[in-house]
C-alpha cells in the first residue's frame, strides 16, 4: 500500500470511500446522529434520494433541522425494518400523486410499528415523513391517525388536531346548513 500519498490523492480516496459507503448519516435538529442504509433511504424518501443523487449528503451527518431526534429515530427505524421486510413491487411504485389508486393497506409490521407510538410521537413522525417525502411512511402514519378522525364532529376534530377555528358564527352556520347531510349521515 502506498504510504506517501499526495493530498489530492488522499482526498480522492476519501471521496471514493464515501461514495462506496452503504449508509448515510442523518443529524436531527437536536444534534443526534443516526445511520441508515443508503439503499433504503433512497428508496423510501424522495428527499433523501435527491440529496444522495445530488451529492449533498454530509458524511459527518446530514442536517435535518426540521426533525427532532425522537422522530428521526423512528424514521430510521422504519427504514431499517422496511429494508428487512420483503418489499413488494406495489409499495415501491406507489405514488403520492393524486391518482385514482386506492390507498395501500399497511402491512402487519407497519401497523405494529405505528401502534406502539404515542400520540405526539405519531404526529411528529407524520410531519417528518411529509418533510422527507416518504410516501409509504406518510401513508402508514396517515392511515393510523385517520382512525382518530373518523366519525368525529368538526368540534372534536379541532380539539384532537389542535386546529384553530377561524370561522365566524355565521359562516359556521352556513356550512352546517350546506353540509347538513354530512353531519347527520351516520
Amino acid at each position: 500500500m502506498e504510504v506517501d500519498k499526495g493530498k489530492g490523492e488522499a482526498e480522492e480516496t476519501r471521496k471514493v470511500a464515501e461514495a462506496d459507503r452503504d449508509t448515510v448519516t442523518l443529524k436531527s435538529s437536536d444534534g443526534k446522529l443516526f445511520e441508515v442504509s443508503k439503499e433504503a433511504a433512497a428508496r423510501l424518501s424522495t428527499v433523501l434520494a435527491g440529496m444522495i443523487a445530488g451529492g449533498s449528503i454530509d458524511d459527518n451527518g446530514t442536517d435535518l433541522k426540521q426533525i427532532g431526534s425522537e422522530a428521526l429515530e423512528n424514521v430510521v427505524d422504519y427504514c431499517n425494518k422496511h429494508a428487512n421486510s420483503i418489499p413488494s413491487a406495489a409499495l415501491i411504485s406507489s405514488s403520492i400523486s393524486f391518482n385514482t389508486a386506492p390507498f395501500k393497506e399497511p402491512e402487519e409490521w407497519e401497523r405494529k410499528f405505528v401502534d406502539r407510538l404515542s400520540h405526539d410521537a405519531l404526529f411528529d413522525l407524520v410531519e417528518a415523513a411529509n418533510f422527507l417525502g416518504m410516501e409509504r411512511l406518510l401513508d402508514v402514519t396517515c392511515h393510523k391517525i385517520s382512525e382518530m378522525m373518523k366519525g368525529k364532529s368538526p368540534d372534536q376534530i379541532r380539539e384532537v388536531f389542535n386546529i384553530k377555528n377561524d370561522y365566524t358564527k355565521e359562516e359556521l352556520e352556513e356550512i352546517r346548513q350546506e353540509l347538513a347531510w354530512a353531519f347527520y349521515d351516520d
Binding site: 385517520s146 373518523k150 368525529k152 368538526p154 379541532r158
Partner: peptide, 14 residues
Amino acid sequence: RAGFVTLLRCGATC
C-alpha cells in the same frame, strides 16, 4: 383516509 363524510366535516374546522 377518514372517509368522505369526515373529509367534508374537516372543511368545517377551519
